[in-house]
Design a protein around this nucleic acid. Structure first.
Lengths: 106, 106
DNA sequence: CACTTACGTTAGTATATGCTTACATAACTC
DNA sequence: GAGTTATGTAAGCATATACTAACGTAAGTG
């Protein structure tokens, strides 16, 4: 999860992910969308690939990339667990408050 | 979302978040859980606070922190949208394949 | 009011990151 | 096989980040 989080923490990489979410694109097509140089985009693609967020497929001299949404699952699970258990904690606190207010205490 | 993503991309900050998820803790209590110095933790708390991921409350000389799970919502939404639309794209592709196989084409 | 406690803030440093330019490579094209 | 196309890799640089040690400060305590 660590790698995936760091990967999507950078705006350019999120944009790249969005680009290859629905379409499989070549490195060149991807870099055409950015102001930075092609090697910079290539480096971002490497980061995304190592984080398991994109798949790479070679076709002739081109390399085609496509999003790999499963790579985001660990992050989703982390967030959902955090969220749900926090809500659970709030609920418990509310119930504690309720008991206090009612003058009950067990 | 940018700030929240960068905030949770650092392991120490995720650990801090987990610590204050269920309990409100003071800066000192939090830093007691880490090998790094107290100022380092204090800096992490500032980052988390500015990202909207924790609330700070002052009580005498102490500062009490607690997780603010709503701060994670934008990230959750980003991930869920990404996920859902990607699945949609896969579905459309599958249907296209289906049509090809069947020899139909409209 | 001196003293302590619980903190944040500053300055400095080492490492990581994002980028560029220059170079290397692998696959098609004649 | 020489030349072109598509792309990754390496070296170098500027900025950001995570940390430490030293200092500043506001709120309680005698």
């Amino acid at each position: 999860m660590e790698a995936a989080l760091k990967a999507i923490a950078a705006p350019h990489r999120r944009q790249i992910l969005s680009l290859v979410r629905d379409d499989e694109l070549s490195a060149g097509e991807i870099s055409a969308h950015f102001a930075v140089t092609r090697p910079a985009v290539s480096q971002h693609l490497t980061v995304l690939k190592e984080a398991g967020l994109v798949d790479e497929r070679r076709n002739g001299t081109r390399r085609l990339y496509r999003a790999r949404p499963e790579g985001l699952l660990p992050i989703r699970e982390f967030l959902e667990e955090f969220w749900d258990e926090r809500l659970g904690a709030l609920k418990r606190e509310a119930e504690t408050e309720e008991r206090k207010k009612d003058g009950r205490d067990s």
